[in-house]
C-alpha cells in the first residue's frame, strides 16, 4: 500500500524538453513545474504549440525529459529504461486518446482486455466485462469498433484505461471527435471516476470541457502561465438534463406558436 504514502501523485520539477530541428533548438517544455495530488481532476489548456501534448507524453511516460526530475507515485521516471516505462504505463496510467485508438477488427471486450495481457494475471474477461459495464456498454461486448458510434468507441477506450485500475487517467482531447451530448456523457464518466478517487489529467482546448474539471493549468510556449481551481464547475449530469430538455420541449412549442 505504498500508494497511500504518496498524496502527491505527480511531481514535475524544472522539466525541459529540447528538440533540435534543422540545427535549431526548440524548447517544447521550458522549465515546467507541476504537482498533482491524488484525487485531483486537472485540465491542461493552451493553444497548439504550447507544449501541452509534449507535457502529456512526459506525464504518460511515453517520453523522457531532456532535463528535470519527474516522479510518479514516488518513482523517479526520467532515468528508467524502455521496459520499466512500459511497466509503469501498464500499471499506473490509463490512456484515453482523441482518436479513440481502438484496435480494428477486434471486439470491445478484447480491446479492453489488452492492458491486462501485458500486465497482471487473473480473470481478464471478468475484469474487462466489469469495466465495460461501468462505462455503460455491458450490452456491446462483442461489437467491433466499426459497429460502434464515436461516443461508444470513446467509452470502450475509457473502459480500457480503467481496466487495470490505474491511479492516473491521462486523456488527450477525449471529446475532440464526438458530439456535444456524447461529450457530456464522457465527461460524466470521468467525473464519476474522479469521485471514486481516480486522479485525472486531461488536455483540452474547449473551455466548456475544462469547466468540468476541478483545476485548470494554462500553458504557453512551453511554460505554465496559469494554475488555479475551476470556478463555477459544470456537472455533466446537469448539462445532459439541459441538453435533453429542449428536445422534449420543442414539439410542444410548435403548436403554441401557430
Amino acid at each position: 500500500m505504498d500508494a497511500d504514502n504518496h498524496v502527491n501523485l505527480l511531481s514535475l520539477r524544472d522539466i525541459y524538453k529540447i528538440y533540435t530541428i534543422g540545427g535549431q533548438e526548440v524548447h517544447a517544455l521550458d522549465g515546467v513545474c507541476l504537482e498533482v495530488n491524488v484525487g485531483e481532476f486537472v485540465a491542461i489548456m493552451g493553444p497548439s504549440g504550447s507544449g501541452k501534448s509534449t507535457l502529456m507524453n512526459m506525464i504518460g511516460c511515453l517520453d523522457v525529459p531532456t532535463s528535470g526530475t519527474y516522479k510518479i507515485d514516488g518513482v523517479e521516471v526520467s532515468t528508467l529504461d524502455g521496459d520499466a516505462l512500459a511497466a509503469i504505463r501498464n500499471r499506473k496510467i490509463g490512456f484515453v486518446f482523441q482518436g479513440f485508438n481502438l484496435i480494428a477488427r477486434t471486439s470491445a471486450l478484447e480491446n479492453v482486455e489488452l492492458p491486462l495481457m501485458y500486465g497482471q494475471q487473473g480473470d481478464r474477461k471478468a475484469a474487462a466485462t466489469a469495466a465495460l459495464v461501468r462505462v455503460g456498454l455491458g450490452d456491446r461486448l462483442d461489437h467491433t469498433s466499426s459497429e460502434l458510434s464515436g461516443g461508444q468507441q470513446q467509452r470502450v477506450a475509457i473502459a480500457r484505461a480503467i481496466v487495470s485500475k490505474p491511479r492516473l487517467i491521462l486523456a488527450d482531447e477525449p471529446t475532440g471527435n464526438i458530439s456535444t451530448l456524447q461529450s457530456e456523457e464522457i465527461m460524466q464518466i470521468f467525473q464519476q471516476l474522479n469521485d471514486d478517487g481516480v486522479t485525472i489529467v486531461m488536455v483540452t482546448h474547449e473551455e466548456d470541457i475544462a469547466r468540468h474539471c476541478k483545476r485548470r493549468v494554462d500553458m504557453r510556449d512551453g511554460k505554465v502561465v496559469g494554475d488555479g481551481p475551476v470556478k463555477d464547475r459544470l456537472m455533466a449530469g446537469d448539462v445532459i438534463e439541459q441538453l435533453k430538455r429542449p428536445l422534449v420541449a420543442e414539439p410542444a412549442a410548435v403548436p403554441a406558436g401557430v
Binding site: 504518460g60 511515453l62 524502455g82 521496459d83 512500459a86 511497466a87 504505463r89 501498464n90 500499471r91 490512456f95 485508438n101 481502438l102 484496435i103 480494428a104 489488452l114 492492458p115 501485458y118 500486465g119 480500457r160
Partner: peptide, 16 residues
C-alpha cells in the same frame, strides 16, 4: 503502426 503505438502506450514491452 498505429496498433503498435497503442500496444506500446498501454504497456507492451519492445520484446512483446
Amino acid at each position: 503502426t498505429r496498433e503498435i503505438g497503442i500496444r506500446k502506450a498501454i504497456g507492451a514491452r519492445s520484446r512483446d
